[in-house]
Write a protein that binds this DNA or RNA. Structure first.
Length: 279
DNA sequence: CGTATTGTTTTGCC
DNA sequence: GGGCAAAACAATAC
C-alpha cells in the first residue's frame, strides 16, 4: 500500500489534526512491530509527549515529539485511521479497534489514532532525536527535495550491475519509490526495468530523474493510489489508480504505442512494462 | 492445494 | 567488505 505518495497523503491529513496534541494513553495489542525502545519503555516514554510536528522521510512517517522521535513505517499493509470517538468508532467502515489494530493512541483533544497492519510488515520506532540520521543512514535522497539531482543519480548508478528496477526499489539510490511508482517512472522514462543501472546513459538518467519527480508529484496531488485498500486517516481513497499507465495493466494496450503491456517477475516483484517503448 | 500482493531485513555467495 | 539475489517475515484473496 504505502509508497511515498501514500505516506505523504497520510502526513498531510494528520498534520493539522494532531500537531500540538498530547498523547494521553496508549494501547498495544501486538508488539511485534515495535523497535528501538524496549516494550516497557515504549509505552512509558510515549505517554504524555506532545506532537510538535509530523514529517516524512521516504516511506517513513515522523512524529516529532518533545525530546523523542516516533517513526512509523507502514510496511505493505499498514494504515492509520483517525477518529474522534473515545471507544468504538462509529464513523469508520468497520469496527475499531479490530484484530489488526496493533497500536492505539489517544490524544488530548479527543482524537484517537488507530494503527492497523494486517500483514505486520510495518515498524513503530521510538527513539532519540539524535538517532535520526543513523536511522535513515540507508536512505537515498528525497526524490522531491534538492538533494536529488540528475548528476547525483548518474553517479550513483555508475558501475552498478543490478537492474534499474532493483536499484530503485532498494531505497538507497533514491528514497520512497515502491513497486508501483518504479514501474510507472521507468515507463515514463522509456527505460527497460531489467537494464543494469550502469548502462543507463547520462541523457536517459536526466529523463529518469524528471520522470520520477513527475510521477510522484502527480500521485501526491491525486492523494495516492488506492489499488486494493489504501485509504487516508479520514478513510478517503486516492485517485492515482486512474492515472496508472503500466502498473496492473498486463494484457492491456500501451497508452503510448498500443503494444500489449508485459508483466514478469523482476527483483522478486511483479514488473510491468511496454516491450516496445522500453527497450 | 497452489499463486499473488503497494516492503524491508537477513542470509549467503562471489 | 560491497554488491547482488533470494529467502524470510505474515495475512489474505483468488
Amino acid at each position: 500500500m504505502p509508497e511515498l505518495p501514500e505516506v505523504e497523503t497520510i502526513r498531510r491529513v494528520l498534520e493539522p489534526s494532531v500537531t500540538d496534541d498530547k498523547i494521553t494513553e496508549i494501547f498495544i495489542r501486538q508488539n511485534r512491530m515495535i523497535r528501538g525502545q524496549s516494550l516497557y519503555f515504549f509505552k512509558q516514554e510515549l505517554t504524555g509527549r506532545q506532537i510538535l510536528k509530523v514529517d516524512r522521510r521516504g516511506k517513513y512517517l515522523i512524529f516529532r515529539l518533545n525530546h523523542k522521535i516516533f517513526l512509523v513505517h507502514l510496511g505493505m499493509s499498514g494504515q492509520i485511521i483517525r477518529t474522534t470517538d473515545n471507544s468504538v468508532s462509529q464513523n469508520t467502515s468497520f469496527p475499531l479497534p479490530d484484530k489488526h489494530t496493533h497500536l492505539t493512541l489517544w490524544l488530548s483533544s479527543g482524537t484517537v489514532l488507530y494503527f492497523r497492519d494486517p500483514r505486520m510488515f510495518g515498524r513503530y520506532i521510538l527513539s532519540d532525536p539524535n538517532d535520526e540520521s543513523r536511522l535513515f543512514s540507508n536512505l537515498g535522497p528525497e526524490p522531491l527535495g534538492p538533494q536529488f539531482t540528475p548528476s547525483g543519480l548518474y553517479q550513483d548508478l555508475r558501475k552498478r550491475t543490478a537492474s534499474i528496477k532493483a536499484l530503485l526499489l532498494s531505497q538507497k539510490i533514491v528514497a520512497g519509490l515502491g513497486n508501483i511508482y518504479v514501474d510507472e517512472s521507468l515507463f515514463r522514462a522509456k527505460i527497460n526495468p531489467a537494464k543494469p543501472g550502469g548502462q543507463i546513459s547520462k541523457k536517459q538518467t536526466k529523463i529518469l530523474h524528471e520522470s520520477i519527480k513527475l510521477v510522484l508529484t502527480e500521485a501526491v496531488n491525486a492523494g495516492g493510489t488506492s489499488i486494493s485498500d489504501f485509504q487516508d486517516p479520514e478513510q478517503r481513497i486516492g485517485n492515482y489508480q486512474n492515472h496508472l499507465q503500466v502498473y496492473g495493466k498486463k494484457g492491456k494496450s500501451c497508452p503510448h504505442c498500443g503494444t500489449i503491456i508485459i508483466k514478469e517477475n523482476l527483483a522478486q516483484r511483479g514488473t510491468h512494462w511496454c516491450p516496445s517503448c522500453q527497450k
